Simulated scan of single mutants.
Amino acid sequence: MQADAEAVVEEFTPKGPEQEPGTLSFRVYRDPARSDYLLFVEHFADQAAYDAHTGSAAYQDLVAGRFADLVADFVEIDHELVSEASVAVS
C-alpha cells in the first residue's frame, strides 16, 4: 500500500500545494528505515492559508479521501518556527 500512498501524494502535490499561494513549502519524506512511513513537513503563511489548504477540493478528494483510506495512523502536530537558516548550495 506504500506505493499507492506515495502515488496519491505525487498526484496531490501539483493539484494542491503547488497551486496554493499561502503554501510556503510542502515536502514529503520517506523513512528509509521504515518503508511504511511518510513524514509531511508543511509550512503555511498563516492559519487562513492552512485552512484553505485543508479545505481545498484536491485535499478533500486525495488526502482526506483516498490517502486516508490507505493509512493506518495519521498524527498531526503543529509547531511554531524558532530558528531558520537558508543554506547555499554550490
Results as ranks from 00 to 15, higher is better:
60 Q>T: 09
40 F>H: 09
30 R>C: 07
90 S>L: 11
86 S>T: 14
52 A>D: 11
22 G>Y: 00
89 V>S: 13
48 A>L: 06
16 G>Y: 04
35 S>R: 01
78 D>K: 09
10 E>V: 10
57 A>E: 15
22 G>F: 02
72 A>T: 15
6 E>P: 02
90 S>M: 02
86 S>V: 12
20 E>D: 14
87 V>T: 15
61 D>H: 09
17 P>C: 11
52 A>R: 12
19 Q>I: 05
88 A>L: 13
29 Y>I: 06
70 L>R: 12
79 H>K: 04
14 P>A: 05
82 V>I: 15
38 L>D: 09
26 F>W: 12
76 E>T: 14
38 L>T: 06
13 T>Q: 09
71 V>G: 09
39 L>Y: 01
76 E>Q: 12
82 V>M: 14
36 D>M: 00
23 T>R: 00
67 F>H: 13
12 F>M: 10
28 V>H: 02
79 H>W: 11
52 A>M: 04
22 G>K: 00
78 D>A: 12
7 A>F: 00
28 V>F: 03
41 V>Q: 09
15 K>N: 06
34 R>W: 01
70 L>Y: 12
49 A>S: 14
63 V>D: 01
85 A>H: 15
56 S>R: 02
59 Y>P: 08
7 A>R: 02
55 G>S: 10
6 E>S: 06
90 S>A: 13
57 A>G: 09
88 A>M: 11
46 D>S: 08
42 E>G: 11
73 D>M: 03
52 A>G: 03
